[in-house]
Amino acid sequence: MTTLTVERPPVPRRTNGSLPPVPPHRGGGDGPDRDPAPHRPPLDNVRLAMLFLICSEVMFFGGLVSAFLVLRVTAAVWPPPLQPRLPVGVTAVNTLVLLGSSVAMAAALQALRRGDARALVRRLGLAAGLGSVFLLVQGYEWARLVRFGLTLSSDAYGTTFYTLIGAHAVHVLGALVWVAVVALLAARGRFTDGRTGALRACAIYWHFVVALWPALFLAVYLV
């Protein structure tokens, strides 16, 4: 079980000898043999894995948003009377800030392609900074809403608002930590050798959490 010996692959146990020509194909469902050649996959492992991670995340937020919509459309009055209204204007500006961070991330990848390590670190820092601004503004707005009396347990309005926006905020926070780590590694010259998987994965994830926000903004604030 533990052996780490490297053995030669086993020699085929027999030869086919002199047999009649290959008969028409039976079973196994296969066409005529082509020369088997290794292929270059259209998407490399990192891109593919991130694509499926995003599918999974979409299902997670799909569950939350559809649950929210169920409560939203069955409520008699929405938002309920005597509850504060959500800050649409500030959040719209904040949305632009977050979208800006995505642009910074795209620029960082461009710097990576050019091999410009300093610009890469700078732009990663910019993306992380804009993301932090977004979170801080969100946090400030939350604090104001709580002061106005909108809490998790006040009713379905508060419940859905804080759960959905909170779930997104946790994702942004996680992505932010990832970007920060990647930026730190980039500053130490980690991605100069062509092994950029962690950086590219991080960029894809960052674009995802940014792209998720307008959808949530639309569903929770505007609808």
């Binding site: 649950a67 069955t74 409520a75 998790l152 347990s153 006040s154 009713d155 379905a156 419940t159 759960t163």
Partner: peptide, 16 residues
């Protein structure tokens, strides 16, 4: 946390 997703008393929906 006292949210109301599934509690009808706070506007939630058990069938959800």
């Amino acid at each position: 946390l006292g949210t109301n997703w599934f509690r009808p008393s706070g506007g939630g929906e058990p069938l959800l």
